[in-house]
Structure formats: C-alpha cells, structure tokens
Design a binder for these strands. Structure first.
Lengths: 227, 227
DNA sequence: CAAATTATAATTGTATGCAATTCGACTCGA
DNA sequence: TCGAGTCGAATTGCATACAATTATAATTTG
C-alpha cells in the first residue's frame, strides 16, 4: 500500500467523522506537514477523493469538502432503489450455500442486538448491516454494480439512517433480512428484488421523516455532523 | 484547462481509436517526452483514467489498457437497462418545451440520414444519437445518474452497436426516438421509461447477435479494434 | 540440464523547488 | 462614501531529481 493510499483513507475518515466539515477546504501543504509527507501523495489522494465524490476541486483554489443537501440524499435513495434490488436479483441465482449461511448468521446476530436494547447496539447493528450488504453484493458477482453502489452510497448518509428508525421500523428491517434469505434460498430473483426494494423504501421513509423534523427545528442537515 | 486535463483527453482518445490497444501499457515517461511535459500531469491523467475505468493500475508496473470481454459488455447493458429508463422517466416530468423541440429536431435529422443510405451515414447517426441521449440526460436533471451512466457507458462499446443493426432494427430505433418524444410530451414517465427499455433491449439483442457471429468466425471482441 | 538466485534495468512512488493563477485587501480616484 | 484598479499573500500546477520496488535475464549451482 502506497503513501497516497493511506492518505486517501485518512482524509476520508476525517470527512466522515466531521473533522473536516462540509464546505471547508483541505489544504495539501497542511496535511503534508502533519503527516510528514510531501504534497505529492496528498495531491494524489485528493484527486481520488474528488473522483469518488467526497470533495470538489476548485481550480487553483483547493479541494472543498462536499455539502449534502436533502435533495442529494433523495437522489441517492432513488438510485439505490434502482440498483440494490438488482443486487438481490442477481444474488438469488448465484449465491452458494455457505454464503447463505453467513448471511443468516449475520441476520441472527442483528436480531439479537435488536432485542438487547444495549447502549450502542444501533452502532453494532449498523456495522453488521454493512457486512450483510457487502456479502450480498459479493454474491451478486457484478464488479460494475458494486463500484456504482460504492460510489453513491457514501456511508455518512446511509449508516446514519438506522438511528432514525422507530422500534417497529427496526424490527421490520430485521424481518426484511430474514425474508431476503428465504427468497435467496428459493432462488427467486423477483422475490429477492422486491424485498430489497421494500427494505430501501422503508429506509427512505425514515430518512424523509427525519428530514421533515430537522426542517421544523431548524437543525442543519447539509453539513456532516461531528462525531 | 490544465495540462493534466488535456493529457487525459488525449490518452482516452488514443485508447478509443486503438492507438493504445487493450492490454498494452501506457508509460508515463514515454508520453511525457512525446507531449513535452513532465510525468506529473501524465500521472494525474492516468489516475483519472483508472478511476473512470479506462485503464487498470498495476502497482509499480504501470497502467494497462483494459480489455473488454463479452461478459463486460453484458454487464454494462444490464446496468443501462436499469438506469436509462429512469432517465426517461425523470425527463418526462421535467422537460421543457424547447428541450423537446431540440430532441425532435435531432430525431428528424437521424431519420433523414437513415433514409439517405449515405456512406458514413451510420457514423453521423451515432453522433446525433449521442447528442439525443445527452440532451435527454440533461432534461432528467440528476447529476448523479448522469455521472453513473457516463462512467459505465464507455463509447467504444455503445457507439459501435449501431453498426450491428439491420435496416429493420435501425428503423425501429428511430421509431423509439419518436415514441419517446410522444411519451415525454404527454408527461408519461411510465411510458417513456418503457420505450427507453425497449430501445436498450433491442440494442442488446443486436450486440448479442454480433457477439455470437464473431464467436463463430473467431474474430476478437476483447480488444478495441484499430481505427 | 534445470532450478534457484542474484544483479541489473526499467518503471513507478515520493520529495522539493519554482511558476502560474486566484482571491482578498488596500489604495486611489471620482 | 462607493467603486474600480492594483498589489500581495496564499494556493495549486508543473518540472526535475531521487528513492523504492519490481520484472527480467543472466548466472551459478545442484
């Protein structure tokens, strides 16, 4: 792994946890001094971040961390509703027994956490949920579909959507995971795609409700909140 | 426009017309000497080409021009069939009168060229067709959807698909353009999406037939043919 | 003679210095 | 007082030099 790769991950992480707030500029020289590297690998990392949509390059003026408007969030959901059911559909006709077992194991652990009501259970569920989707993606066997989704589903929005769920919605989400397993096991692509679609539309509804809420209270939604 | 931007376009053009064949390596130093630039802007252009999927970065060994297998072509069609109907659907509820008129003008010119049977009429139609799709994309008003499609619909495959059409298929394609205009004018998203889907599935069928043909004759399909 | 090994050359990865460009503040004039 | 123009500081864009890594090929050894 090259220095530029490390810098890429470091900067992305800092954008994620709000250390670099939306709208702020990421300076090559500053990071270079801090990490004791020259500007060259920093530049390369920033260019990758630009093409991955994390920052915006203003010619001769720097790399600006992107701001997310509600409209952006909606646009991403619209694309996910198109693409992710296709992931499920493909997986239904390709998934292997052991992959199915792994997914089931993840689903069980999420359900357990859901019942526990532990302190940071939501965060743990979110991690497992990411793993679940990643393994499903792998089973679908379409590198381009994977790349597209990785490009648009940037964690700051998707991950946090879990926190807006009511208890019922969370239970419903767990139910979706289970039903998807049955659809996959049956090799029924239509069924699997439909379940995934419901899964996403439910997430979108929760997100929309949250957006309406912050609209009233006047809390910002554009900027990535700090950790 | 920076030097890196120019280099990006130059290299991409050379990949397109076969000057840099699939599987070959693009050397930073060689291009730098030829264009009388240092390796720095060349590197930057190559990194962009990597993230746009034109070349593959082999660590410490260089940038290799990607090879397209039949499976890749099918994967791209699968994604287009998902995404482009959504472009039509969005455009149906957003398009303005003058945009519709421009699309119609393009459709008419394509139909004329189709009747002419001129020598390089196919090439001209392909150019107009690209314009048609670009304007439709603009009318859809979704930058992310646009970016996704630009990423996957790399011209070497899509543009050439026109050349595999029979006369009937070409006429049918023109008919799709017309019908799409009616659907857009009616503001009927379902209709527009359905027409676009047919449009793409027809293109896919022609591509598949062509692939089967070269399979028999043993002609290569993986490498980008020379101009 | 074959296989492992080492040396070499070629290529990318990184550091540093300078040039070009842009944005902001300050000054000058109306 | 307001506006236009100009100067300067800051930042990116590019060139060059050097270091690190890897593939290749010659070489040596069993």
């Amino acid at each position: 792994m090259t220095a530029a790769d490390r810098v890429y991950q470091i900067i992305r992480q800092r954008i994620l946890n709000g250390q670099y707030p939306a709208g702020s500029y990421v300076r090559e020289a500053a990071i270079g001094q801090e990490l004791e590297l020259s500007r060259t690998p920093i530049r390369e990392a920033l260019r990758r971040l630009v093409s991955d949509g994390w920052v915006e390059a203003i010619p001769h003026h720097g790399a600006q961390v992107v701001s997310w408007t509600q409209r952006d969030v909606e646009e991403v959901f619209e694309l996910r509703v198109l693409l992710e059911p296709q992931v499920a559909r493909r997986a239904a006709s390709r998934i292997e027994r052991n992959q199915l077992d792994q997914l089931e194991s993840l689903a069980v652990r999420m359900e357990d956490l859901c019942r526990d009501e532990g302190e940071n259970a939501l965060e743990e569920i979110a991690v497992l949920n990411d793993d679940y989707h990643a393994r499903l993606m792998a089973a679908a066997g379409s590198p381009r579909l994977q790349r597209l989704l990785e490009t648009i589903v940037q964690v700051p929005v998707s991950r946090r959507s879990f926190h807006h769920y009511t208890r019922d919605e969370l239970a419903g989400s767990m139910q979706h995971h289970r039903e998807l397993l049955r659809a996959l096991d049956a090799g029924d692509g239509d069924w699997a795609a439909s379940v995934m679609r419901s899964h996403l539309l439910a997430a979108r509804a929760a997100q929309l409700r949250f957006a309406a809420c912050v609209e009233e209270t006047g809390a910002g939604v554009a900027s990535t909140p700090r950790a």
